[in-house]
Computed example of a mutant assay.
Amino acid sequence: MKFAATSTLFAALLSSTAFAQNPSLASIATKLAADDVIPDVLPAGFVPEVVLNLSYVGRPMEYGTEYFPYINETDSLPVVNYAFNSEDYYTLALVDPDAPSRANPIRAQVRHYLSVNIKGGDITTGNSTSTSYLAPRPFPGCGRKRFVWVLAKQSGYDASLTVPVARPGFNIANYASTNGMTIIAANYFEVEASPAAECIIPGGAASSSAASSAAPTASSAAPTATWSSAPYASASSTAAPSAHPTSTSTRKPKCKPATILV
């Protein structure tokens, strides 16, 4: 009996430690609002119902963690975990609210991933709705960018869920609301583009200098030029450019020469 009591106490201590290490749902909302993920992506007043845990290359995503696309850290889907009901269906999305730059997000949101009808916690059961994973590739001169993962709970299985072929101009909050979903969790990470005088989309036009990561202002008016959606619309663009070096390192300086992102 003494051993049993000791074991129970030890288990309780472990549980208490795990809870202390797990951020509260209110504190997550505070973190999301601090970097304007609320309300740029999520509705004002949003408070998650569960914690969305993700990690790239073994490094946990902790609400603003920086990853490095130019050493291939975000080439593949991250490891995803969340509390779930095995009989429920979920939608998981990755959106870029800072396309092409946070200073001038005229193409936001770009839909980098969308999987619907996920049974329970097994994301391999979901339907990508023709939105295969598009690895983040910040264009030179476009500054520091946020990428936001969003988890929504569906009202049930829905075989009719579709999205436009074009990835830009998406809105995950509207999509969830229109399709009877409830957003229950979110997490986000940041990447930084290599330096350049202007933020330029290949095949498109240059925007005003967007090296600053400041939030959009009234002076960030959209240029009159037509921007090409080619870098976003094709599934083939998910392949890592051959110019990206392969590395096993997990940390690098924030900026690299622009040539590696061309």
Results as ranks from 00 to 15, higher is better:
L13Q: 08
L13C: 12
L14I: 14
L14K: 11
L14E: 09
S16D: 06
T17K: 10
T17G: 00
A18G: 00
A18S: 07
A20I: 10
A20H: 09
A20Y: 13
A20P: 00
Q21V: 07
Q21N: 08
N22V: 06
N22M: 11
P23I: 05
P23H: 09
S27L: 06
I28P: 00
I28L: 05
A29I: 02
A29W: 06
T30R: 12
T30P: 00
K31P: 00
L32K: 01
A33M: 08
A33Q: 13
A33E: 11
A34T: 08
A34H: 07
A34E: 09
D35Y: 07
D35R: 08
V37P: 01
V37D: 02
P39S: 11
D40S: 15
V41S: 02
L42D: 04
G45M: 14
F46R: 03
F46D: 04
V47A: 13
P48K: 03
E49F: 06
E49Q: 15
E49S: 15
E49Y: 06
V50W: 12
V51R: 13
V51F: 06
L52N: 02
L52G: 02
N53D: 13
N53T: 14
N53A: 15
N53I: 06
L54M: 15
L54S: 10
S55C: 10
Y56M: 07
Y56A: 03
G58Q: 06
G58S: 10
R59N: 10
R59S: 11
R59I: 12
P60V: 11
Y63L: 01
Y63P: 00
G64N: 04
G64H: 01
T65S: 14
T65D: 03
E66G: 02
E66C: 08
Y67W: 09
Y67C: 00
F68L: 03
F68A: 02
P69S: 07
Y70R: 14
I71C: 01
I71K: 02
N72P: 01
N72M: 08
N72W: 04
E73N: 08
T74A: 02
T74D: 00
D75M: 04
D75R: 08
S76C: 00
